[in-house]
């Protein structure tokens, strides 16, 4: 495993830690999109079906279990925890995420990695992950002020995919030497969706101002 991949995974993990920290310590999920969280649960459940069929390493199994477990935990807090659920910004979380699920599923049927149930679901998870942040970004745009933990959470999530891009470039030249259209293009789209957010995040950080996205 190369340094970009490890840094990407750790950034991804850290983003989840930051979100859980926000929820558990402040007992609030204000500014967090439940729809994005639901999409992540779906992404992890459909991608990690290979937990039952293939073994790569202890690291791989552990991380997959952590991602599934934490995404379900976050979903549970936002949906069912009697204090946390009252802080959910329901009216602002208006993105129609079912359209994303349907669109990605049709895309995966048309352009799957391979024609089998598990490979179509794997491809679906790659497409869905690319756009899963959209409800969250829309919610942030509608929020008047974005707290630090929420801003850092979204930044870390974007940084994770950007680091994976570097990992793919590195792996292309050092081991694989093959073009991998589906994850590369999806990963590029995913990272590009954060461009606007990155710009305002870095600006607010440099000016020591509160993060706010223009409507």
């Amino acid at each position: 495993m190369n340094v970009f991949r490890l840094a990407g995974d750790m950034t991804h993990l850290l983003s989840i830690v930051v979100l859980l920290l926000k929820i558990r310590t402040t007992k609030s999920c204000a500014g967090i999109s439940l729809k994005t969280q639901e999409l992540y649960v779906l992404v992890f459940l459909t991608r990690y079906l290979d937990l039952f069929t293939r073994y790569f390493s202890v690291y791989n199994v552990l991380m997959k279990l952590i991602f599934i477990g934490t995404s379900v935990a976050i979903f549970w807090y936002m949906r069912y925890h009697k204090v946390v659920k009252q802080t959910y910004s329901k009216d602002l979380d208006s993105f129609r995420h079912y359209h994303l699920i349907l669109g990605c599923f049709l895309m995966a049927l048309l352009i799957p990695f391979d024609f089998s149930v598990t490979e179509v679901l794997w491809t679906f998870s790659i497409y869905l992950e690319a756009v899963a942040i959209l409800p969250q970004l829309v919610l942030l745009q509608k929020s008047r002020n974005i707290d630090n933990l929420t801003g850092n959470y979204v930044f870390l999530l974007g940084a994770y995919r950007a680091l994976y891009l570097l990992n793919w470039i590195y792996r292309f030249f050092t081991e694989i030497h093959k073009i991998r259209w589906i994850p590369w293009i999806s990963g590029l789209v995913q990272t590009a969706l954060y461009a606007d957010f990155f710009y305002y995040y870095i600006q607010s950080w440099r000016k020591h101002e509160e993060l706010k996205l223009p409507a």
Partner: peptide, 10 residues
């Protein structure tokens, strides 16, 4: 069938 190089990523 499926190259393992692709699927060891998270």
């Amino acid at each position: 069938l499926v190259p393992t190089d692709l699927k060891d990523e998270l």
